[in-house]
Design a protein around this nucleic acid. Structure first.
Lengths: 228, 228
DNA sequence: GTCTATACATAGATAGAC
DNA sequence: GTCTATCTATGTATAGAC
């Protein structure tokens, strides 16, 4: 799999999902023409993520968003009932895309060792293609309402569970050795996360996506693979 | 070194540093009695960090802070000229304590392998003892002014450089093998950071500080130590 | 469906009493 | 040194015109 191809898949999902978002939020979205809604939702999401890569969601005013999205303040409120709901919509959208792509990709793989490599690579590719969203989700999670925070945590744990499963299978198949599967999965997640939390650092140092992914795979395998 | 002893060291530094903060900010602190200043600065810092473990700095109003610190709104402005400056003060204080403790502890160690183990353990102990501050610093870094952001980045890179140095020495001494020292240091930092960014997860799973530290050391050594 | 104008709330900062 | 009262700015949300 090559990164450029991977990016196309994500873009397709992006439009699919905007339709789904509409379905799931018919009540709070007042505009009726489906085409218009999808078109404007994408504008709104992109503008929000763009602004919030530089400042916090709270620091972004509706005035900001109106200016960057091209819609007026009044019009914006036809797509969400209040600012908090916008925050929820974005989180929902991102989780859905990420989840779909990740599970799709992993299902193709064969043995545990290959599955692990693909899971790592896909996750890093995903966070590269949807960098703004990954960053936004992590950094704004604490400003969600309690029930939405719960969903975010579930999603985080679900991703971790994918790695726990792969490693557990690998241990059973005797290709991996690990005395603490959960902690292993945790630190893998930590390394994956660094790619989108500290992107400025890697960009500055000209570390490529593939270089980083391969390195994480190497470190992981050094600790998991049976020594000969 | 045991965690409980370690915590005492940090508390001593906390008072020392409040004095230093006063020295460095004579111009913006209007209150003259040194004892009062130190006493109230500690109140203000603790209250801020406490509130900001639950919501963002921006979401914390001066009214919130007044209520939690025990000082009135008016009085607070005797200790900083505006809210942004308070943010800077806290970052400064934290960086100074962390930096001092980390360099002190590492200087005691012998060979590269031991130095690496102590550096990892100290960093995790530190972020445990000063959890609120570490979390706050990371999460609020993006809301700093450009020059203050630069200082934060320098501090981050400086910590990473400590690990780069240790590993480089180890490679020269032929106790470590690494074809990419900088990436190795980066992923070590990523694992260290997870301890304070995802503390809820580790608390929930009853993973102790020492267990986590030992695990990070194990993973690191699996990738760095020469295979026999 | 989208805009402009505006009501209403909240937060930062200051002035002057104690 | 600290407090209360208050000014001013900014931001969310809505109402009604187009």
């Amino acid at each position: 799999m090559i990164y450029s191809e991977f990016k196309k898949i994500v873009n397709i999902s992006k439009e699919d999902i905007s339709g789904q978002i509409l379905e799931q939020n018919r009540d709070s979205i007042k505009v009726k023409k489906e085409k218009k809604v999808i078109e404007n939702l994408i504008k709104i999401f992109d503008a929000t993520l763009g602004i919030c890569s530089r400042k916090s969601f709270q620091a972004m005013s509706i005035r900001d968003l109106a200016a960057h999205s091209g819609l007026s303040r009044g019009a914006l409120y036809s797509y969400f009932t209040n600012k908090e709901e916008l925050l929820n919509l974005i989180q929902m959208q991102g989780r859905q895309i990420a989840n779909r792509v990740l599970t799709e990709q992993i299902s193709c793989a064969g043995g545990a060792a290959e599955k692990l490599r693909i899971a790592i690579k896909t996750h890093i590719y995903l966070s590269e293609a949807m960098h703004n969203w990954f960053y936004f989700t992590y950094i704004e999670a604490r400003n969600l309402s309690k029930p939405e925070q719960k969903k975010a945590i579930e999603s985080e744990l679900q991703t971790e569970a994918i790695f726990v499963d792969i490693i557990t299978t690998g241990v059973k198949e005797k290709v991996f050795v690990s005395d603490n599967v959960i902690l292993t999965a945790s630190v893998i997640k930590a390394m994956l996360q660094d790619w989108y939390l500290k992107r400025w650092k890697y960009t500055q140092r000209k570390v490529s996506v593939d270089e980083y992914a391969d390195f994480v795979i190497k470190v992981t395998e050094a600790s998991l693979l049976r020594k000969k």
